[in-house]
Design a protein around this nucleic acid. Structure first.
Lengths: 231, 231
DNA sequence: TGAATAGTGTCTTTCAGACAATATTCT
DNA sequence: AGAATATTGTCTGAAAGACACTATTCA
């Protein structure tokens, strides 16, 4: 890469902007969609619950920055997916910051591990984050908007991408898959229709294994195909 | 907005990045999806066909920058829609540039007006730009990828957003609407089913007027509802 | 054997595609 | 009347929802 010499090419001045990535780490706990928030350790909004995010480094891919934010600020190593960029001029009181919005999906079981000092998964219903008292939680910056957009995007693409399978453990039953879909969609779905549709969608690979230690009939376990089966 | 004083807040250094918007201006001409390209007047890739784009100004909203690019570089005043952000470290030879991808939809009739010196609409089939000889056109930077992503996004959201109606004049017939859908999807659709689905979708508002000067039975004209009708 | 859920079958309704008939406007 | 397209109707098959039945495992 060459040195930054804008004057060589563009006479009209341009000003570089601060660029960050914010990561909406989502999971489903007890049938409810939740998002991981971290207590801010810096100004502004020090001490507030907010999305984990980092500044993008000059030689860092956006996806890599998002993974770094997820790992360092949220404690989760999961695939990330870009969904929308937020660039309002006043979204940060310090300066102009353009933030590329990413989401990450982790299994519900990982929620406990990530939930450490200053990190909590909080419920998202109708795209709104709610605290323990079930009241709408006020978030700094435009983080409420970012989370709502992420939830809407996930809902919209639930059937069209492999991403949502990140919300489940590697092997899962159709019941668990249905519960995740219901949590994301915020509505219940018909069991036989759901089973038929998903089994014929080409996303699922039977493992031949079953659940154990359930106290009732164990369900077949499936894994998600990395790429959708053609037929 | 305060002065840029990152040291006050974030001890670890961060480097601001160049941020641009690139606009994929789409229209349908003779049943074919086309994209507006402009001959570059600057280095690098001077003289190449490329997407119109501008640097984002420090106090300019992203949407406003996209409208400015559409107006100044493409000669079209149309609503814009953000679809994806491209930030590969080597996507521009000058320096690290993060580009927020926007698309704009204009009616086919506007194509002639915008097509002036150094501006042309070129066919997009299967997400690939093709020149007059119908061969794949090589584009600088990652503009081929940006256009493919825009086409895919438009196809994906054809039914779910009001944006695609920008491809039509203010009043249009169901035939014209169907032709636009077929051009974007790259496949033909069933006429009665299409009519029923769209008429019941809540997007269309009958005007009571009809086509004129057609030499055959004129079709009813409709307009797009700004917001989808609830029922 | 009972509890509890897995997995499936059936009926009904809705919707899209195929195909074609009827309606309308202009020349 | 003829040309050309708009608009609608009918048939059929695929898919989804409602509901309930059978199957399986463990305690």
């Amino acid at each position: 890469m060459m040195t930054l010499r804008p004057a060589d090419y563009d006479a009209s001045a341009f000003t570089p902007l601060a660029v960050t990535v914010d990561v909406v780490v989502l999971t489903v706990v007890d049938g409810v969609l939740t998002v991981l928030l971290a207590k801010r350790a810096e100004q502004p909004a020090l001490g507030s619950w907010a999305l984990p995010g980092v500044f993008v480094r000059p030689d860092e891919e956006l996806d890599a920055a998002a993974r770094r934010a997820a790992q360092d600020k949220a404690g989760v190593a999961a695939p990330v997916r870009q969904f929308q960029t937020f660039g309002g001029v006043a979204r940060d009181p310090r300066m102009r910051i353009v933030s590329v919005g990413y989401m990450a999906a982790v299994p519900g079981g990982a929620a406990e591990a990530a939930q450490a000092d200053g990190r909590r998964f909080m419920r998202v219903t109708d795209g709104v984050v709610r605290g323990a008292n079930n009241r709408k939680l006020a978030l700094p910056f435009d983080h409420a908007e970012i989370i709502a957009a992420a939830a809407a995007d996930l809902r919209h693409n639930l059937d069209h991408s492999a991403f949502a399978f990140g919300l489940l453990p590697r092997e899962f039953s159709l019941r668990e898959l249905q519960q995740v879909h219901e949590a994301v969609r915020g509505a219940s779905v018909n069991k036989p229709a759901f089973r038929k549709r998903l089994l014929e969608s080409g996303w699922l690979e039977p493992t031949g294994r079953r659940e154990t230690d359930k106290g009732f009939r164990p369900a077949e376990l499936y894994t998600a195909r990395a790429e959708r089966r053609v037929a």
